[in-house]
């Protein structure tokens, strides 16, 4: 495979006396969907927040396109091309889709030497991008609050891609969604991957991960249990790795199915 677009090397993160990450290594390649799995408290959130510039690693280094990188805040990560879509903090319900789409990246037009928000341009681009993603809007001024959870995730993903993300981090995009909405978001992930963007898909749902993932990394208690390719994993194997042992297997036997 080509060079990894981002390489997180032996990342450690301590919060006071708590060791949230105890040496995690991860490589992500362009055009792949890399699933990061782990149970609650495994360190997934801490890890992606380190990747997106919210936290600074206590130890370890980050190589982005082969060069070491230091983020002082999320804006650095965004301008480098690392975009993160958070589960419920992606969009502002009271604002229109167009205003949300261009939030932080407002297009401007000069008039009389002053710079104004370019509504026409913003509305046109928003409508086009939404059509491509399969979302029908009444108009660009429709409030995001009227969209479903899956549609909001899709708008947020489309926004990140439109503004030149090379690495797209999705923090549990499907965990609060219904079946149809989930499949919608998963197909969006597939579209994005095919454009050559590296997707880091965080989830604790093995079935969602297997639906779109190319490679899988499992976190458990702040450590990686290795990265596996699509060909070599089974749902049961991933599930066991996430739970960190055999307990789940026995539980599953008694319940008669996968969790």
């Amino acid at each position: 495979m080509a060079e990894p677009i981002i390489r997180m090397n032996n990342i450690e993160k301590h919060f006071g006396a708590v060791i949230a990450l105890a040496g995690v290594t991860l490589e992500v390649y362009p055009g792949e969907c890399h699933c990061l799995l782990g149970d609650n408290g495994a360190g997934k959130s801490t890890f992606i927040k380190t990747m997106s510039g919210v936290h600074k690693p206590t130890k370890g280094d980050i190589l982005f396109e082969g060069k070491p990188l230091h983020f002082d805040d999320p804006r650095d990560a965004i301008s480098a091309g690392i975009a993160t879509v958070y589960q419920d903090l992606a969009m502002i319900p009271l604002m229109s889709v167009a205003r949300n789409f261009f939030m932080g990246n407002e297009p401007t037009r000069k008039r009389l030497g002053l710079s104004f928000y370019d509504h026409d341009h913003a509305n046109e681009i928003t409508m086009r991008e939404m059509r491509e993603m399969g979302i029908n809007l009444r108009g660009p001024d429709q409030a995001v609050g009227t969209l479903s959870g899956g549609e909001r995730q899709t708008v947020a993903i489309a926004r990140a891609v439109h503004f030149g993300a090379k690495v797209l981090i999705l923090d549990e995009p499907t965990s609060a969604l219904g079946v149809r909405q989930t499949s919608n978001v998963l197909s969006t992930i597939d579209k994005v991957r095919k454009q050559g963007i590296a997707v880091v898909f965080i989830t604790h749902n093995v079935r969602h991960a297997l639906a779109v993932g190319d490679r899988f990394t499992v976190l458990n208690r702040g450590q990686t249990l290795g990265t596996a390719d699509r060909q070599t994993v089974t749902p049961e194997g991933l599930q066991d790795m996430m739970a960190g042992g055999q307990q789940l297997a026995t539980l599953e036997g008694s319940l008669g199915g996968t969790v």
């Binding site: 502002i92 205003r99 261009f102 939030m103 928000y117």
Partner: peptide
């Protein structure tokens, strides 16, 4: 009519979401 106006709405709508996109 300005970029700053969009930021004003964003700050009041959801400050954290606004921060995440760089406002």
């Amino acid at each position: 009519k300005t970029k700053f106006g969009n930021w004003i709405f964003a700050c009041g709508g959801d400050a954290q979401a606004a921060r995440y996109v760089g406002v």
